[in-house]
Amino acid sequence: MSPGHRQVIMMTDFVKKTIRPFRALRFLARKPHTIISPHEQHNDIEGEPLPTERYRGIHINDWETCISCGLCARICPCDAIEMVDVEGEQKKRPEVSYGRCCFCGFCEDVCPRDSMHLTSNYVMIDKNSETFTFLPENDLKEFQKEYIVETSQLRYNDKDVKKAEKEPSAKKGGKGKKKK
């Protein structure tokens, strides 16, 4: 390779390596890949809504089938589940403390009667930390619905938000009203 040839290569390399990065500018005209949460729904690559069914979130426990064997409490690696006495019930029921739970789903795996399940709801908002320890029941209980935001409710669009802003505290529970 002659020295002149090498210099030509170096020059073209320099020009190429100065111009190529500007290709990134074509993303100016494309749709961004972030979403405005919670106004937009989080979808996977095929446009199916997330979280999926397998997502490990807040527990539910079917008291009809639960035999209160306590296996969930024994397998729990975080010691988050405790079997407690419940008024009006003969059996002990598992109580989950969400300050500890690591959402591994082992309780669901070992449950011999298939009564314990992890739902795909994961948003819990409340000022009182005591509400984060509760007994999972068949369905989310009334008082829990105040602070557990069901995932399906997260998927509202902008119109709903504006509507909700126009009718303040119409849907909120008693706690929301007392704030101001």
């Binding site: 997330l50 397998r54 490990r56 591994c104 789903g105």
Partner: peptide, 22 residues
């Protein structure tokens, strides 16, 4: 990280967890 999020979506659909899969 935007592309990584699609991988995390896959993990979520397969394992139920996004970061720690267990």
């Amino acid at each position: 990280n935007g592309e990584r999020d699609y991988v995390l979506d896959l993990f979520e659909a397969l394992t139920g967890g996004r970061v720690y899969h267990m």
